[in-house]
C-alpha cells in the first residue's frame, strides 16, 4: 500500500467529486436488488449476490464513514470489484427505479484507486505512460505512424492505383483517427477504411502528428488529466486542419 493511501486522503478524494446525483444515490438506494439480474456479471456468476450492482459501490460509503480498516486486502477487494466485476456498461441504471447509475460510481472508485492508491491494471498503467511519452498507447513515434500510412498505401498500389490516404489535408469534412493498435498490428484496418472513403469520394484526412490515436484508456481508470490531454490533441488537429468533423475508427 502506498504512503498516500491513508483513509483520510481517500475520503478527501471522494468528497469534492460526489456531485448532487452521487450523493443522492448513495443516500436513497433502497437496497431493493431490482438491479441484480440486469448485470451480466451477476448472471454469469450464477446469480452470486456479491455481483449485485448496488453492492459494488459500497466502498464509497464505507470509506466516507471511516468505519472499516483499509488495508491491502480491502484495497485488493475493491480493485477486483471495480475492474473485474463491473465494466461500467450502465445497463443497471435503466432498470433501477431511481435511475441510479452504478457504472458512474464504479468509475469514481476506479479514479480513487488510480489517483490516490496508485492501483490499476498493469495494461492501463503502461498505456498511460505511453500516452504521456508518445501521445498514443502503442509507443509509436510520429515517424512510425507516417511511415505506416505510406507503406500501407504502397502495398495497395497494384489493386487500387488511385487510392489515397491524405495526410494533413486542410478544409476536409472528416478528420479520421484510429486505434493505435491499427498501425502497430492491423494496418489492413486502415487500408479498408481508406478503400471505403475513396469509393464514396469522402473528403478526409489523417493528422501527421499527435491526435491520431483515438483510444482513451486513461479514462478507464479515471486519469482525467491524461484523458483530457488526449482529446485536446485530437481537437487541436481538427482545428488546425479546419476539419468539419472528427471520425473515430470502429
Amino acid at each position: 500500500m502506498s504512503d498516500k493511501a491513508d483513509p483520510q486522503t481517500m475520503a478527501d478524494f471522494f468528497k469534492p467529486r460526489l456531485n448532487a446525483r452521487f450523493k443522492t444515490w448513495l443516500k436513497i438506494c433502497a437496497n431493493c436488488a431490482l438491479c441484480a439480474d440486469t448485470c451480466h456479471f451477476y448472471l454469469a456468476n450464477d446469480r452470486k449476490p456479491e455481483m449485485i450492482p448496488a453492492y459494488k459501490v459500497r466502498f464509497i460509503n464505507e470509506i466516507l464513514k471511516g468505519k472499516v480498516t483499509i488495508d491491502d486486502d480491502y484495497l485488493k477487494k475493491m480493485y477486483e470489484t471495480v475492474y473485474y466485476e463491473c465494466n461500467m456498461c450502465r445497463r443497471c441504471a435503466l432498470y433501477c427505479p431511481f435511475g441510479i447509475d452504478i457504472g458512474l460510481m464504479v468509475g469514481l472508485q476506479r479514479a480513487m484507486l488510480h489517483n490516490v492508491a496508485d492501483i490499476q491494471p498493469a495494461g492501463l498503467k503502461s498505456a498511460i505512460e505511453s500516452y504521456k511519452q508518445f501521445g498514443n498507447q502503442m509507443s509509436l513515434t510520429q515517424e512510425d505512424w507516417v511511415d505506416t500510412i505510406e507503406w500501407t498505401l504502397e502495398e495497395m498500389e497494384d489493386y487500387y492505383p488511385t487510392l489515397d490516404i491524405p495526410i494533413d489535408k486542410e478544409n476536409v469534412d472528416l478528420l479520421y483517427t484510429v486505434n493505435a493498435r491499427e498501425p502497430k498490428f492491423y494496418p489492413q484496418d486502415i487500408q479498408e477504411a481508406a478503400i471505403i472513403f475513396n469509393a464514396v469520394g469522402e473528403s478526409w484526412t489523417v493528422p501527421s502528428v499527435d491526435g491520431w490515436d483515438d483510444t482513451n484508456l486513461a479514462m478507464f481508470c479515471g486519469d482525467l488529466g491524461t484523458s483530457k490531454m488526449l482529446v485536446e490533441k485530437t481537437f487541436k488537429q481538427a482545428e488546425k486542419l479546419k476539419a468539419k468533423r472528427v471520425a473515430i475508427t470502429e
Binding site: A20, R21, I28, A30, P97, F98, G99, I100
Partner: peptide
Amino acid sequence: TKLSHAVLFFFSRGATAVEF
C-alpha cells in the same frame, strides 16, 4: 432518511433520463 426518495425520486430519475 431514505424515505426522502418520495421527492428525490423525481430529481434522480430526471437527471439520469436527461443523461440517457
